[in-house]
Design a protein around this nucleic acid. Structure first.
Lengths: 104, 104
DNA sequence: CAGCATCCCGATCGATACTG
DNA sequence: CAGTATCGATCGGGATGCTG
């Protein structure tokens, strides 16, 4: 019963545009703002917004690298999204293979 | 490389608001428009839009039940989303258990 | 240059009213 | 019951500016 609410809550957090892509990008290590921006092609203002939201949600956290240099790294909670990301990615790949409009 | 694109493609289809919730609702059998509307609390116009998009994407399809009665059922492609939905739901449930702002 | 904040516009969301 | 039409609110995104 809470099962539907759990999915809805998850989607409110990481259903926002770019959010899951950001997490996916961080799965292979911490990255900086500019790295994410170039890798994803997302607008900088939205990227900043998402990073703030994901930080507040405890999915990622800011880690200072050096003087005036900081990076974003996944928390344990963020890493736990790997399964979901893989599942969605596999589904997307399957859809691309079959073409866009092939159903049952 | 195509891995990121696959996820992005998947999100373009089912990353829209209500889309994944609709699919989840249909996992336990075909349902009608009003059933979905009441179960999800989604506005009727958006629900209609999503159902059209999901149909076009081959995720669900319209099945006539009786005279003037039709339902929506998942296609094979739609059912393949179960893994992703379960993973996201499990993640959301874990987040709810721990509280909203507990990170690493 | 990296990391944001601001302004503005178009697209999307959402509540409600309306139609077959 | 199964949608469509309308309209205000919100969000995404491009450009730009500001700061360290």
């Amino acid at each position: 019963m809470t099962e539907r609410e759990a999915l809805a809550a998850a989607l409110e957090l990481i259903g926002q545009r770019w959010a899951l892509l950001i997490v996916r990008e961080l799965l292979d290590g911490a990255k900086r703002f500019g790295d994410l921006q170039r890798a994803l092609g997302a607008p900088t203002n939205i990227l900043a917004t998402r990073l703030k939201e994901l930080t507040a949600a405890g999915v990622i956290h800011r880690v200072p690298m050096a003087h005036n240099v900081l990076a974003y790294r996944l928390t344990d909670r963020g890493g736990a999204l790997k399964d979901a990301i893989d599942a969605l990615g596999a589904w997307g790949a399957a859809v691309e293979r079959d073409g866009a409009a092939t159903g049952s």
